[in-house]
């Protein structure tokens, strides 16, 4: 096997690991809400350093591969995609971490009905599935699976749009909870951001495998 092949394979393994890490961070957040388990929230916060370290390691590996191996074609596209994906993953993990920080403080005594109004659990579930799809898509080089992320992102966008209405209704009905309601409103936005970032990851995966650039295309076109 050529040396560059080994390097690319190792990089791919590292990237898959990072996706899994971040996927766990997000799914743990959902479990925190489900089980009202503060310990899990603390785990997520602690896990943030590991994600950051992974991003740095992957960035360094990409730099080395470019400098030393002059990758072209598929190899080059993979390295470029990896740089962007690891960046997206780091920001997803960041969002998950700030959610965990909020949950650590409030999950014990928050009103579950409020969480349901904002569909936060559903969003977290969707995000987890999306990240899992990305992991599988990258592992199996399945661009069809990668493209599925666009639909799911639409779901998150819909929930986000609905949240404005939900927020204003709730503020009128429960003005004493205004702090929590506003925090939850922000969390919905963050979760929608996670969806966007995961969608980016999907686009990068398609670019790496098919050399098609889906960025900034209209959703209808990207369905092809």
């Amino acid at each position: 096997m050529a040396q560059v092949e080994l390097e690319i394979q190792a990089l791919k393994d590292n990237l898959l690991d990072m996706i899994e890490l971040v996927e766990n961070q997000v799914s743990k957040c959902r479990k925190v809400i489900e089980k009202k388990d503060v310990r899990l929230a603390k785990e997520v916060i602690a896990g943030e350093t590991k994600v950051n370290a992974q991003e740095l390691a992957i960035d360094k590996d990409c730099e080395n591969i470019i400098a030393l191996y002059n990758p072209v074609a598929g190899d080059l596209r993979f390295v470029l995609a990896t740089i962007k994906i690891s960046n997206d993953l780091e920001r997803i993990a960041d969002n998950a971490c700030s959610l965990a920080k909020f949950l650590k403080k409030y999950v014990a005594h928050i009103d579950h009905k409020l969480l349901d109004q904002f569909d936060i659990e559903k969003m977290l579930q969707t995000c987890t599935v999306m990240l899992n799809d990305m992991h599988e898509a990258l592992k199996k080089e399945d661009t069809k699976l990668a493209r599925k992320v666009f639909d799911k992102d639409q779901t998150l966008n819909a929930i986000n749009r609905k949240s404005v209405k939900s927020a204003s209704t709730l503020l009128k009905e429960h003005p004493e909870d205004h702090k929590i309601i506003l925090r939850l409103f922000t969390i919905v936005r963050n979760l929608e951001r996670i969806g966007d970032l995961t969608k980016n990851i999907g686009e990068e995966i398609v670019f790496h495998i098919e050399a098609q650039v889906l960025k900034h295309h209209k959703p209808e076109q990207s369905k092809s």
């Binding site: 050529a2 092949e5 990758p71 072209v72 074609a73 598929g74 190899d75 596209r77 050399a211």
Partner: peptide
């Protein structure tokens, strides 16, 4: 050719496979 070769043989050659 160097970013997106159409032929698998080309890709294998230029990536050193």
């Amino acid at each position: 050719l160097f970013t997106n070769p159409k032929n698998k043989q080309t890709e294998n050659y230029i990536t050193g496979r």
